[in-house]
Amino acid sequence: MRSLHPKKYFFVINCLCLFFILLTTACDYQRIKPWHRDILSQDRAQLVSDTLEFDADEHIYSSKEAPKGGQGIGGGGCGCN
């Protein structure tokens, strides 16, 4: 059996994720009130649950890969090797 190119693997993964997203959420939009946000206010449901973990990852990957950013702005540059 011929193996898929890595980029096609990635495309397939993207499609599956998109399908998962639509399946679990898009069909269930609710105009919820502020007092219904108990789950979303929990630490585990934050966009970034730990700032220092996020900062560390941003620094590692921006110094080891060509792309950077996307999640926000700010932060100092570095002459990373």
């Binding site: 007092w35 946000r37 979303l40 206010s41 630490d43 934050q46 970034v48 730990d50 700032t51 926000g72």
Partner: peptide, 18 residues
């Protein structure tokens, strides 16, 4: 007040409600 019980980092500012 109960909803605002956790420390939220900068990027979560966009969440607003929390």
């Amino acid at each position: 007040a109960l909803l605002i019980s956790t420390f939220t980092p900068d990027a979560n500012a966009a969440l607003g409600a929390d």
